[in-house]
């Protein structure tokens, strides 16, 4: 099994799928970190550095899109969804323009940079925008295929990538389907629904639970919006208890999206793993432990959810 940071997958995929003359990649002075420098090297005439000016970048991307371009606007998640929220809402979301936001360095796994750069609210912010597609890929192949899907989808897409290398969770012949969750492991006692970097931990949690005789299903939700209602409802009906896990605030993220579906279709206990406080500096592995974003906590919360079953 390989290991790759999904921001690197983003850079690779932009080169791999970026031959279309209509694709333009924009960055805000972070191309070495977001890995759009790979695209810059391959297609320098279609790479636009906007300088440290994210608000302008989002609107320039919108303008390019009105003229038929597929505009990728890249920066850290904090400055994409955070700083430029209103530009995305009004100039990209409202007119449903064909802009793809490549948001890297999402989540607490940014590590040492600390709270100012650990974006834990981007999913919540982007979920409020009607028509916005949100993809939070779990591994290299999924991230690359997400970029391809974003190119093929007509309309705004927010892609969430990480700085930290992540283990492969999908097979090499993996087929990515926008808006469809992936059941990585079947189970009947509880379902762990995870996204992004947390998917690899969810698989480990299922192993831990299996050792205790608990049969846990694992579902990877890479597309948080539009969310796969079918796979979530099925999990609620068949396992009767759910744990969600994400590198994000508890409010408004995957956990909220899942509970909205579960409450409407098949109410059952849902334990949401996330945080409700700012991040801090530290090594990603240390931060995961401190913030409860571990397989151990997923297993513990799974048991707590099972205990709540009627």
């Amino acid at each position: 099994m390989g290991k790759q940071a999904t921001r690197v997958s983003y850079g690779n995929a932009l080169v791999k799928y970026g031959a279309d003359e209509n694709i333009v990649v924009l960055d805000a002075d972070l191309s070495k970190s977001t890995k759009t420098d790979m695209f810059k090297k391959a297609y320098p005439e279609r790479f636009i550095n906007c300088g440290i000016a994210e608000a302008d970048m989002m609107c320039v991307a919108a303008g390019l899109a009105t003229c038929g371009k597929i505009a990728f606007a890249s920066t850290f998640a904090m400055f994409a969804a955070g700083r430029s929220f209103e530009q995305i809402r009004n100039s990209i979301g409202y007119p449903q323009l064909n802009v793809k936001i490549g948001a890297t360095h999402a989540g607490i796994s940014v590590g040492e940079d600390g709270a100012s750069h650990q974006c834990l609210e981007d999913i919540a912010l982007m979920r409020t925008i009607p028509g916005m597609v949100i993809i939070n890929p779990a591994d290299d192949i999924e991230a690359q295929l997400a970029v391809k899907a974003a190119i093929e989808h007509d309309g705004p897409v927010y892609m969430r990538f990480g700085r930290l290398a992540v283990e492969d969770v999908n097979p090499t012949d993996y087929k990515f389907e926008l808006g469809k969750g992936v059941q990585l492991r079947d189970g009947k006692d509880v379902t762990i629904i995870a996204t992004g970097l947390m998917v690899q931990e969810a698989l480990k949690a299922a192993d831990m639970l299996a050792a205790e005789g608990i049969d846990a299903r694992v579902v990877n939700i890479h597309t948080i919006k539009p969310i796969d209602e079918e796979i979530i409802t099925k999990a609620a009906e068949e396992t009767g208890a759910i744990v969600t896990a994400e590198e994000h605030y508890i409010m408004g993220g995957l956990g909220s999206a899942v509970t909205e579906v579960v409450c409407a279709n098949a109410p059952c206990p849902v334990k949401i793993i996330g945080t409700d406080r700012y991040g801090k500096s530290g090594k990603p592995a240390e931060l995961f432990v401190e913030y409860g974003l571990t397989a151990e906590n997923m297993a513990a919360q799974a048991k707590a959810a099972i205990a709540l079953k009627k």
Binding site: D56, C59, A61, A62, G63, L64, A65, T66, C67, S91
Partner: peptide, 10 residues
């Protein structure tokens, strides 16, 4: 800023 993007597209 959008106008700038349109001009760049041209």
């Amino acid at each position: 800023c959008v106008a700038g993007g349109m001009a760049l597209a041209a």
